[in-house]
Design a protein around this nucleic acid. Structure first.
Lengths: 145, 145
DNA sequence: CATAATTGTTTACCTTGGTAAAAGATAAGG
DNA sequence: CCTTATCTTTTACCAAGGTAAACAATTATG
């Protein structure tokens, strides 16, 4: 029942605040979210944030302790976990689990600047080099036997 | 009101069938979805599929015509559009709009085989070369003036 | 022709996310 | 002490996705 229970849009925004600050009160989160909102946009109500915090806690994404009679929330799930869940979902739903299919879409349909492309290539090259290195280790271990 | 209205999980499965077959009746879609389901999983009811087809049409994702007194559905939105919407959503919600951030997550946390990594690098290199080429064209045009 | 099968329509229910006011509890200020 | 401010809890709605039975219309079929 506990494999990254899928968070909504605002729930994720709350998690972002918690990931950034490690711990925060409901009030701090409300203020932060409203600070982020573009001017003119209707602010989120404090009670809304509290309701969502409850729901997040109910599904095990966060926890709280009490300090000076006030709830202090902390994330339980880490960002990379949630990312993996969301990315996995996207891969399954639209890209037939093909990672290169997803990246192909990215470079084809999202506008990627040349610098971003360069960064992208470096990320992939780095990963390839790392994979090669650990393969080498494995091979030399096998040879040593 | 019409910027890729976000489709649910089953709605996407229906769209996949339509994208693959170009056109299909509700019955064909139901059968296909149930064929795809792992054995033992409860089959989806035909009326469920029909309800979802209605909702999809209501939001402009598909349309239908009548042939031999039976509805034949066709996709209106194309796959790449929907992909762009879903990917954009993911980028906004979790990766601060950073494409290389997303790809970094992919190669770090999803298990990517060496072959897939190679394919990945080729995809990126290809895109880089293409970008370079169009940049060259633009440059030579400017020089020609 | 009567009945069974198919197709589309209507209606209903459940869940989750989001929104927020209202109510309750308690500490702080005047 | 009474009021105000600040929390938390309770309660209520709405929308969307998903699920599917029940109903109506129409076509096949024995």
């Amino acid at each position: 029942m506990n494999a990254t229970p899928k968070l909504g849009k605002v729930q994720l925004q709350i998690m972002q605040v918690l990931w950034a600050r490690k711990r925060a009160t409901a009030r701090q989160i409300t203020d932060e979210l409203n600070r982020q909102k573009p001017t003119g946009a209707p602010p989120i109500a404090h009670s809304t944030v509290q309701t969502l915090l409850r729901k997040l806690e109910a599904k095990g994404a966060i926890t709280h302790s009490i300090e000076e009679r006030t709830f202090v929330f902390e994330p339980l799930q880490e960002k990379s976990e949630v990312e993996t869940g969301a990315v996995g979902d996207l891969l399954t739903r639209l890209f037939d689990r093909s990672i290169s299919g997803l990246v192909a879409h990215l470079v084809k349909h999202e506008k990627v600047s040349p610098e971003e492309l360069r960064r992208l290539r470096q990320v992939v090259e780095q990963a390839e080099a790392t994979a090669q290195a650990s393969q080498d280790v494995k091979t030399s271990k096998e040879e040593a036997q």
